[in-house]
């Protein structure tokens, strides 16, 4: 009995989020015939996959109270590498491995700069963004290249004729992340670190090792998102990943993971992705410029931060009164 009561806080938040998702789908569907078409549902799911993966990865650094600004550049790099190497060097498998390996290196560099040079994650990952973007443009200055259909078929196949395989992959990724966070020592220590880094280290947790893992994971998931994007575009684009950084942060925050760390999870992030995706489709239907979606993502992030700081200020004041 008591148990139910004590977890309900985070559960209630998740229920609210998923009801919001449901409402954002059901209400426009009532009024708009094109919106409720199967084709539209397929499109929404298909578009959700790339940003979904990136947001899953982004959840980890935000959970430890950090952030990864380099995910967008990793997405671009991945599309470029995929488009250049898969067709020319022939191997789809080598291409995928190359993309994931490159992303892991980026994550490793992020982790090293944060751990060894003690640079704030915000600045460290901003720095790598510059480096990675430059390298990407050197590999592929203009959008182009070609992603072989042998690869794209693996993503675009529709289960039962409408359910994109890309989204199935996303669900698998979601499950894996959820299991990592809740059923491994690494995952639980991510939460401990987000709660209080110093206290976590006092408890004997190897803080730096966890951080390293977190940034590598975030980068690798960004790269999987990049592969999903490349499969959808069937080509590479050195700038395609740019909007992903902000949208992934927005999705994570909307999904209830706190910027201060220690609270949240990937189930919430998935809802955040759905909400952001539905929002853009709704805006499209009403003919609002897709650029306005960036404005919206920006506003949501700022609003979330403001909301968070108001809340923590009121917690502080409550402490002062005690």
């Amino acid at each position: 009995m008591r148990r139910v009561k004590s977890i309900s806080d985070s559960k209630r938040q998740l229920i609210t989020l998923y009801l919001t998702v449901l409402g954002m789908y059901a209400i426009p569907a009532l009024f708009s015939a094109p919106f409720r078409s199967v084709q539209n549902a397929t499109n929404i799911l298909n578009q959700a996959a790339p940003i979904g993966f990136v947001a899953l990865g982004q959840t980890f650094p935000i959970l430890i109270g950090g952030i990864d600004l380099s995910v967008g550049s990793v997405v671009s790099l991945t599309t470029a590498l995929a488009a250049v190497y898969m067709a020319t060097s022939g191997g789809i498998f080598t291409g995928v491995c190359l993309c994931l390996f490159a992303a892991a290196v980026v994550g490793l560099v992020n982790g090293l700069v944060i751990n060894k040079l003690r640079v704030e994650p915000l600045i460290a990952t901003l720095g790598t963004t510059g480096v990675v973007s430059g390298i990407t443009l050197a590999i592929m200055p203009y959008p182009g290249g070609y992603v072989p259909s042998g690869f794209t078929n693996w993503w675009s196949y529709r289960v039962f004729g409408f359910f994109p395989l890309a989204f199935v992959y996303f669900l698998v990724g979601l499950l894996i992340c959820h299991l990592i966070l809740n059923f491994t020592r690494f995952g639980r220590r991510v939460y401990a670190l987000g709660g209080d880094e110093h206290k976590a280290s006092v408890a004997g947790i190897k803080v730096k090792r966890i951080k390293m893992g977190v940034y590598v994971l975030s980068s690798v998931f960004a790269s999987i998102g990049g592969l999903a994007l490349a499969a959808r575009m069937r080509s590479g684009d050195p700038l395609a990943g740019n909007p992903f950084t902000l949208s992934s942060i927005a999705a994570v925050i909307v999904g209830g993971t706190s910027f201060t760390g220690g609270v949240g999870g990937v189930i919430g992030t998935a809802a955040g992705v759905a909400i952001m995706g539905l929002l853009s489709v709704i805006l499209n239907i009403y003919g609002i410029s897709p650029f306005f979606q960036n404005v919206l993502a920006g506003l949501i992030v700022v609003a979330a931060v403001v909301f968070n700081s108001i809340r923590s200020r009121s917690i502080l004041q409550a402490k002062g009164r005690q």
């Binding site: 004590s6 639980r188 220590r189 939460y191 401990a192 987000g194 709660g195 209080d196 206290k199 976590a200 408890a203 947790i205 760390g261 220690g262 609270v263």
Partner: peptide
Amino acid sequence: IDELSVMENLFV
């Protein structure tokens, strides 16, 4: 760690 449950704090 404020964000964690009682038992997670015991075994952190």
